[in-house]
Amino acid sequence: HNLTITQGKLFFHYNPKLCLSEIHKMEEVSGTKGRQERNDIALKTNGDQASCENELLKFSYIRTSFDKILLRWEPYWPPDFRDLLGFMLFYKEAPYQNVTEFDGQDACGSNSWTVVDIDPPLRSNDPKSQNHPGWLMRGLKPWTQYAIFVKTLVTFSDERRTYGAKSDIIYVQTDATNPSVPLDPISVSNSSSQIILKWKPPSDPNGNITHYLVFWERQAEDSELFELDYCLKGLKLPSRTWSPPFESEDSQKHNQSEYEDSAGECCSCPKTDSQILKELEESSFRKTFEDYLHNVVFVPRKTSSGTGAEDPRPSRKRRSLGDVGNVTVAVPTVAAFPNTSSTSVPTSPEEHRPFEKVVNKESLVISGLRHFTGYRIELQACNQDTPEERCSVAAYVSARTMPEAKADDIVGPVTHEIFENNVVHLMWQEPKEPNGLIVLYEVSYRRYGDEELHLCVSRKHFALERGCRLRGLSPGNYSVRIRATSLAGNGSWTEPTYFYVTDYLDVPSNIA
């Protein structure tokens, strides 16, 4: 807008934040220059609390790290170098490059900038070799853009010569660093050979998330399962459950009422301010606690030095998902009996873990797994792929695949051998790939016309006998059925096997 004052003059007093240069501009645009008398524009009460600059400061050096910015700028000295009290560095987070010096300023003089007072450097006698002032900004957020400017702080001049310097606002972004852990990993099994893994992005990506790394490792069953005799009275049979499938998407929606109208769909109840505040506090606490764990609990591995020492970490090797089922080394339970199943799973520490690289999504279907087997899954978020990966501390989750139908069934015939004193040795093959492992066998036998009897055969007993022995049988026709019990439950009964026990007292003698 054009402003013209045809008559009258300007009068400025007691404006401590208004620089004289701005008042002189007002004289020019209003056409009143030359009308004012000496005392109409006070030299001592206008701009006496402001830094009124008329020179431009330029930054000469900028260096960044993930949490620091090192700045240096060209030296500046007023005509009387004693008038320079120091520099004021202003900075704040700036997602967009549209910041002005006066953003967030209120009537009390406060604003949204963080201000650092910096002492002037030592003055050199040689004007050509003056030290460049600077400042190291610490405690910054990774991968965050900051708006920065600097200006001088000078003393009051009796001659009211307006001098000083100020830089333009520059924008500097800190470097990326390792992201925080992925949030809320959930693993479920939808079949006997697959596990579905879902997660949420890290709360602090500290860069642009480029991919996720998912490692999985087959877990050995508890050692007590191999040692305890679950045929003993009072000892509860062990059981394991597989990871249940995901709930429906509708039930997972946030901010939804727990109660549904019987007449149909209901609208979600909005969260109160107290609920939102509580969630923010919980989120802040979780982030602080995660940072504490990362800094205190997890110790970084030592990389190899120039002395030739090897990095103890196993090298990563990509495998196809079809090879995942046989990740671990199978060892027989008892070496003397080769027909026992290889369900003991000690994992070799030198073995390469299978892994998958996930790009542009937060889910993965891990296939080719062994049925009813526990897996430990390790999830890392990465925001750099080359020249070397920059990934987060791992988040861990466990899951067990679903049982395989008929995996616990005894394959092959049940054979028998009759000894003296009416002892019958029953023999059968253990299931080759049971659900988890076989903890015991149930032997059901009966003599024709009598009630059915049951015998429990422990895992250890089966390994020693290759089956079991029935003792003290009365003469007669017998039928026997056997079924295995694994961590997933009972298998199917075998087809009945028949044998006849004679009275050993009636056996004919070869003595003449």
Results as ranks from 00 to 15, higher is better:
D204H: 01
N206S: 04
I209M: 13
T210Y: 11
L213F: 14
L213M: 15
L213R: 15
V214I: 15
V214N: 00
F215Q: 06
E217V: 09
R218L: 11
R218Y: 13
D222L: 11
D222K: 06
S223V: 07
E224L: 05
L225W: 11
L225P: 05
C231A: 01
C231P: 02
L232Q: 04
L232C: 15
K233R: 14
G234E: 14
K236R: 08
R240Q: 08
T241G: 08
T241S: 06
W242A: 09
S243G: 10
S243L: 10
F246C: 08
E247T: 05
S248F: 13
S248V: 08
S248E: 01
E249S: 07
E249R: 08
D250I: 10
D250A: 10
H254E: 07
Q256I: 12
S257K: 10
S257G: 08
S262Y: 12
S262H: 12
C266M: 04
C267F: 14
C267T: 13
S268E: 14
C269S: 08
K271R: 13
T272V: 06
I276H: 10
L277N: 14
L277P: 15
E279H: 04
E279K: 03
E281P: 03
E282F: 09
S283G: 09
S284R: 13
S284H: 09
R286W: 09
K287H: 15
T288L: 12
F289S: 06
E290I: 15
D291G: 15
Y292W: 07
N295D: 04
V296W: 13
V297E: 05
V299T: 06
P300H: 10
R301H: 04
S305W: 06
S305M: 08
S305H: 03
G306T: 10
G306K: 10
G308D: 09
A309L: 11
D311R: 04
D311P: 04
P312T: 08
S315E: 11
S315P: 10
S315G: 11
K317Y: 09
K317R: 10
R318I: 13
R318Q: 04
R319M: 06
S320W: 06
G322M: 13
D323V: 06
G325E: 04
N326V: 15
T328L: 15
V329L: 08
P332M: 11
P332I: 10
P332C: 07
A335Y: 06
A335V: 10
A336P: 13
S341I: 05
S342L: 14
S344W: 11
S344P: 11
S344L: 07
V345T: 10
P346V: 14
T347K: 09
S348W: 14
P349R: 15
R353N: 09
F355Q: 10
E356M: 14
K357S: 14
V358P: 12
V359K: 12
V359E: 04
N360P: 09
N360D: 03
K361V: 04
S363A: 14
L364S: 05
I366E: 00
I366T: 01
I366A: 03
S367I: 09
G368D: 04
G368L: 07
L369W: 01
R370E: 15
R370V: 15
H371D: 15
Y375F: 14
Y375M: 06
Y375H: 07
R376I: 15
I377Y: 10
I377W: 12
L379C: 05
L379I: 07
Q380M: 14
N383R: 05
N383M: 15
Q384A: 13
D385M: 04
D385V: 10
R390Y: 07
R390T: 05
V397Y: 11
A399W: 07
A399N: 07
R400I: 13
T401M: 03
P403I: 13
K406M: 06
V414E: 01
V414W: 02
H416F: 10
H416K: 09
N421K: 13
N422Y: 08
V423L: 04
V423R: 12
V424P: 03
L426R: 01
K432M: 08
E433T: 08
I438N: 06
I438Y: 03
V439M: 08
E442Y: 04
E442T: 03
Y445Q: 04
G449V: 01
L453P: 03
L453T: 13
H454D: 15
C456F: 02
S458M: 12
R459G: 09
H461W: 14
H461Q: 11
H461R: 09
F462L: 05
F462V: 10
A463K: 05
A463F: 09
G467Y: 01
C468E: 01
C468R: 02
R469N: 06
L470E: 01
R471I: 12
G472W: 05
S474L: 12
P475R: 09
P475N: 09
G476E: 01
G476L: 00
G476F: 00
Y478C: 00
R481P: 00
R483Q: 14
A484P: 06
A484V: 03
L487H: 00
A488C: 01
G491S: 07
G491V: 00
T494N: 13
T494Q: 02
E495R: 06
E495M: 01
Y500W: 13
T502F: 06
T502L: 11
Y504W: 15
L505T: 14
P508I: 08
S509H: 05
S509Q: 15
N510R: 07
N510A: 10
